[in-house]
Simulated scan of single mutants.
Amino acid sequence: MNNETSTVQPRVSQTRAFDIPFLRYLWKHRLLYLLSIPGIAYFILFKYIPMGGVVIAFQQFNIFKGISGSPWVGLDNFERMFAYMEFARILKNTLLLAFYDLLFGFPAPIIAALLLNELRSMAFKRIVQTAIYMPHFLSWVIIGGISLAVFGQEHGLINHVRDWLGLERLYFLGDESYIRSILVGTGIWRDMGWGTIIYLAAITGIHPDLYEAAEIDGASRWKQTLSITIPALLPTITILFLLQIGHFLDFGFERVYVFLNSLNQSAGDTLDTYIYRLGLLQQQFSYTTAIGVFKSVVGLVLLYIGNWLSRKSTGEGLF
C-alpha cells in the first residue's frame, strides 16, 4: 500500500503544477520559446548586460583601473557636454538631419506602397518592387562609392551633365549646403524599399469586399485610398513612426562617416561620428558614454510622448 502511494504522489503533484495557467501556457508553446532562445540571448548579451557600463558616465574612467577603481565625478561629464559649443553645433546637425529624415524619409515608403498598389500589371509591379528594395542590401561603403560616381567633382555624372550644359562644376560632397540633402536622400533611396514591403503586406490584409462596396457606391480610386487604404494602414504607420521616434538621435554612424570630410564636417558631423572621434580615437570614454546616455534619455522621452499622443488621437500605440 505504501509503495502504491509513493508512485502515485509525484504524478499528482506534476498535474497540479501544470494547473497553473502560466506554466500550462509555457508548456503548450514550448517549441516557440525554444526557438526564441537565440534572440533572447542576443538581447541579454549585447543589449542588457552592456547597460551596466553606463556607470562610467558618472566616473573619470581609467581603462587600467576599471569601473571599480575609477574615481566618481558625478554629473561633471554632463556639465562638460552642455558647456561645449562644439557639442551644441553637433546636436543641432543631428536634430536637423533627424527631422529631415522624419519629414521626407518616413512618408516615402508609404507613398511608394500606395503607388505600387495601384499598378495593374503584376509583372511590372514585382520588377519595380525589386528595384527599389535591392539598395537595402548594399553597405554604406558601396553607397558612398556610388554617390562619388554621381556627385563627384571630377568624374561625377551630374558634373558631366553640367559640363554639357555649359555650367560650372560643383563639389557637392564638399559643400556644406548640399551634404544634408545628400545624407537624407541616400538614406531614402537605400531604405525606402524595406518599408514599402511592410506597408504592402499591410495593404494585402485589407478585405477586398471593402473596395468592391466602395466601387459600387461610385468611389474613385483616390477616394478608396483616402477612405479605406490609409485608415487601414494607420496602425502600421503608428507603430513604425513610434519606433523611428525612439531612435530620433540615432541617425547612423556609417551613413554619415562615408560622406564626411573636412569641407562638410561643420554641417554633417553628428553625435555618432562625434562619439567615434572622441571615444575611440581620443579615448574619452566617460564623456562619450554621457553623450550616449543623453541620446537614450531623449529617445525614451520622445517615445513616451509619441505613444501618449498616439493613444489619445488614434487609440494605437506600442504600449
Results as ranks from 00 to 15, higher is better:
T130V: 05
G145Q: 08
A112G: 00
L157V: 07
I158S: 08
H136A: 10
F104H: 00
S121K: 08
Y133C: 10
N159Q: 09
Y133D: 05
I146N: 12
L114S: 02
G145P: 01
E118R: 15
F124A: 13
A149M: 10
L115M: 15
Q129C: 04
L114Y: 01
A108D: 10
I158G: 06
A108H: 07
I132Q: 08
A149D: 12
N159Y: 13
L102Y: 03
P135S: 04
D101I: 00
M122F: 14
L116Y: 02
M134P: 00
L102N: 00
I110N: 05
L119V: 11
I158Q: 06
A131S: 11
N159S: 09
V150P: 01
S121H: 14
G145R: 14
S121M: 05
A131I: 06
N159P: 11
E118H: 13
H160D: 12
P135N: 12
I146Q: 08
M122T: 11
D101M: 02
P135R: 06
F124E: 13
P107L: 10
F104A: 00
I127Q: 12
V128W: 15
I142E: 00
I146W: 05
L157R: 04
A112Y: 02
G152S: 11
L119F: 14
S147M: 11
G156D: 03
I142Q: 09
I146V: 15
L102T: 05
Q153M: 11
H160V: 06
H136Q: 07
I143K: 10
L115K: 02
G144E: 07
G156E: 06
M122G: 09
H155W: 13
V141F: 13
F124P: 05
F137L: 02
I146H: 09
A131K: 03
D101Y: 02
Q129E: 15
Q153C: 02
F151V: 11
A112E: 00
L148K: 15
E118T: 13
S147Q: 04
S147Y: 00
L119M: 14
G144S: 12
I110Q: 13
V128M: 15
I132T: 07
D101C: 00
N159A: 09
W140Y: 10
Q153T: 12
